[in-house]
Design a protein around this nucleic acid. Sequence first.
DNA 1: TTGACATGCAGGTATTTACCTGCATATTAG
DNA 2: CTAATATGCAGGTAAATACCTGCATGTCAA
Lengths: 104, 104
Amino acid sequence: MQADKVFKALGDPTRRKLLDLLCEKNGQTLGQLCEHLDMARQSATQHLEILEAANLVSTVKRGREKLHFINPVPLHEVYERWVRKFERHRLSLLHDLKKELEGE
Amino acid sequence: MQADKVFKALGDPTRRKLLDLLCEKNGQTLGQLCEHLDMARQSATQHLEILEAANLVSTVKRGREKLHFINPVPLHEVYERWVRKFERHRLSLLHDLKKELEGE
DNA sequence: TTGACATGCAGGTATTTACCTGCATATTAG
DNA sequence: CTAATATGCAGGTAAATACCTGCATGTCAA
């Protein structure tokens, strides 16, 4: 897993919107995705390249079109590595804080 | 939830390391955290400010020290909003891809 | 009180990022 | 073939980011 690429890819509203669009309808072309974005096509291409580099999106060429498919696996791995780990602290947080304030 | 701040905060290796350090031992001071980082104290402060703005870290002043506590809640919310949604696609991904390649 | 210590504040710089425009290439339809 | 269509490639700019140094402030301990 490359947490860096995944988190950086998700750290942009346009890219999250692209993922949402693919969530609604998988396999859309660049042109279809662009219709929902308020920017030049080339800017959208760059965002999709970043999502692809993070392995969050896979592409397939069909003729002159490029189809985009969402890939949820990296997100799941990020969850396993980061979210679950930190969730163990949910219950103990207030306890830790209290202990520290009392001078440990 | 502010997905933007959370993902951007997580999109930096130094900040993820800080979260890991707090995961090992919650409530550390700025100085303690700096010992593990290869950068100026002020740079670490900036990273911690970003984590705090994303609500991933909470701080408490104790005398001249500043204690840092991890807050896993935003991560959980991000999981609920993003990871679970996309996981529904894990099983259908190959099916969608095949369908598209066949011309839909 | 005074010196050591922990942190805050105010800039300054180099790199990365998110846009853009202009032109090139490749595919399909008529 | 040729024109329309879908995408790729090559820069160019402004803003954000991740560092830094230098100095100020606040707290503790002798």
